[in-house]
Nucleic acid binder design. Structure first.
Lengths: 167, 167
DNA sequence: AACTCTTGACAATGGTATTGACAGGGTTCT
DNA sequence: AGAACCCTGTCAATACCATTGTCAAGAGTT
């Protein structure tokens, strides 16, 4: 069922598909994982499988890097914060952007996107733990629930993969 | 009384002194201001005057950039967050570093500093407002209270200015 | 067989952060 | 008056970062 799947944590996309959905280079996804920002599940044969939550998380990374200019180390801190606080900290920030003073409004106007992104998912900082059953041979990462729909702006436009309803 | 002054919000240091205290180049301080991370007071003749809170804030910036690799855009987001939330979010994060799992501990071990920094001060995003009385002709920025002592590590070692107890 | 996945390595390109220098003008202190 | 320092603005060197791209060698999938 691809993107219409009911369980957003189910690892369903191989790297090429995920990269296509979020419009990044597969190499980039591997780097995000190397940098600890992302932890896709692995099959028994070591193939990465990305879930909807992973996709959402990547979109958040893209939004922050492309639209806000935050570097990967900064994103890591933000993820850690959200996990520690257990709240949608960025959602808190961006939802109330209207309440910002003139200086803040000026900063916000620099961003290309006028959409107010919702909170990031928490960083899946745990190593992938093996759980049986979901897909035979699939290693499912344990992670806190991901919240919020990532921003839908030009740079984060998701691409519907034609004909690839399942990896 | 220089660094022993009772009021940490009082603007007392010219840029060369502040730069010396925090061991950065004056050019860098101007850039931080240009980037909206910092807003020192101004004299009637347009000279920047930095307070203890400003110094603390700069030390936080240095800690995050030098030790955590966060870029200035990332720091801006973190400052905005702390202001929005009105809590010491980074203090929350770093104080509980011991409770992190193995993956987090691995990330933390990459940092040079073993000190756990306390929370950042809020971003002084308001334009400086004129208040009379504190120092004649000095423009005092209005800002939320700054919390926490910044990290004391090698890269953020503050330098006592000899013989310059007051700009 | 053909294609895709893996890790690891290398490189090109554009952007960022810091420092440094300079010009021209203004301010403060001796 | 002169020296030092402040201002804004500009330019540049240097190191680093993020992204993309390529390649090699091996493994996995259809």
């Amino acid at each position: 069922m691809g993107r219409l799947d009911r369980d957003p944590t189910r690892p369903v996309y191989v790297i090429s598909v995920a990269a296509s959905i979020v419009s990044v280079h597969p190499r980039t996804l591997r780097i995000y994982e190397d940098e600890g920002l992302l932890c896709p599940a692995r099959t028994a044969t070591n193939i990465r499988l990305y879930s909807e939550e992973d996709v959402r998380r990547i979109l958040w990374i893209r939004h922050l890097t492309q639209n806000r200019g935050v570097n990967l180390a900064g994103i890591r801190i933000l993820f850690e914060l959200e996990e520690r606080l257990g709240t949608r900290i960025l959602e808190t920030l961006f939802d109330e952007a209207n309440a910002f003073d003139d200086e803040q409004a000026r900063q916000a106007s620099k961003a290309e996107s006028s959409d107010l992104p919702q909170a990031l998912g928490a960083a899946p900082t745990q190593p992938a733990a093996s759980v049986g059953g979901a897909s035979s041979g699939t290693t499912q990462a344990t992670r806190p629930p991901t919240s919020g729909q990532p921003p839908q702006d030009a740079s984060n436009r998701t691409r519907q993969v034609v004909g690839a309803d399942h990896h």
